[in-house]
Write a protein that binds this DNA or RNA. Structure first.
Lengths: 184, 184
DNA sequence: CGCACTAATTGGTCTGACCACTTAAGTATG
DNA sequence: CATACTTAAGTGGTCAGACCAATTAGTGCG
């Protein structure tokens, strides 16, 4: 029944991308629901979801629970350009990597709404620099941001220069956050 | 029963990454099976798979059907470094983007084993430059490579300079491939 | 018109099953 | 004993169906 493809996973991604083009969707438009896609492409909903998740990581689509799946606004793509330019024009010096990482984490810091739960999560790992920073970034829940951070952090870890922040800095980090207004 | 997290998807990724660290896994090591992970982390196998797929896109793990899930060899990470350096040192000039794209596709060309099926798939879309190149890259089945190619191709499409190859070039492409030795 | 309530839609997760492939243990064979 | 073959267990890949949670679109009432 099934055609024998090298990888149906990659085929599915391709199918969906093609469908987006054929439907003349523009950024902000909604894609068919997962159930519709499954029926249209004659694959299971689970496979549709895996493909959509991949497209989400590629910064092409965005999902909203209860709402649907949407074509990303092109603005999100800019992150990549910014990242690439930053890294290269600076010729990837060690100090610039550190600077870039701190910049990214400062961006996350300012964009994440501090809640008790998030603060608790961060305090639980405050001893470990790497885990602390990772958890902070993941709290942003922006896949593209996570992706970029991961790449830059990979550079950083390759430098093997120890922690990015001191324990005191991380503590001050959390304290500052706690001081910011929390709803209710 | 469930803790109320902002996003269990991101939590799951974090859990698995943490488990990798705690288990002291090194590149090349095998992770627990999806079923084991599901039981260990108290989540469904479907959720484990979504998290693993994300980690796969981040270039952290690699799955082998029937074999298992493995920590990526660090060599794969080098792709990112190569890409970043290339783009930035060249200051992202249009001609360099084209050059980079062609380089990537030449790499794919040399790494993919040409089979009848793949040739058929390529010939089916030989009329459309974009689809042709995309399908070629996807046949490599290397998520990291796909990711990098996607980014560079995004630059390219932003240039809006038409096709990368002529129809004749694509045809010669396929012919050359067909000429290469095929097993059996 | 506007507000509250309801029903339908949609993404998120879970369960269980079967398939295809890999690996390794077991077995027969020389 | 060593080798080659067969077999069984394990693993990722896919599928089907169900329920939950959040959003959205109607609907009716004031």
């Amino acid at each position: 029944m099934h055609e024998k493809h090298a990888s149906s996973f990659h085929e599915n991604i391709s199918k969906i991308r093609k469908l987006i083009v054929q439907s003349s969707l523009v950024p902000g438009d909604r894609l068919p629901s997962e159930r519709e896609l499954a029926e249209t492409l004659s694959i299971s909903r689970a496979s549709v979801r895996e493909a959509l998740r991949a497209l989400s990581f590629l910064g092409i689509v965005e999902t909203r629970r209860g709402g649907g799946t949407f074509l990303c606004e092109q603005d999100r793509h800019r992150y990549i350009e910014i990242l690439s330019e930053f890294i290269v024009t600076k010729q990837t010096k060690a100090t610039d990597i550190v600077e870039m990482l701190k910049l990214l984490e400062r961006m996350a810091f300012s964009e994440i709404k501090p809640t008790d739960e998030r603060l608790t999560q961060l305090e639980a790992v405050i001893e470990d620099d790497r885990t602390f920073r990772q958890r902070l970034i993941f709290q942003l829940e922006n896949d593209l941001f996570i992706r970029i951070w991961s790449e830059v952090n990979r550079f950083f870890e390759g430098l093997d220069v120890g922690d990015l922040y001191t324990l005191d800095e991380r503590k001050r980090f959390v304290e500052t956050w706690r001081g910011m207004g929390m709803p209710e």
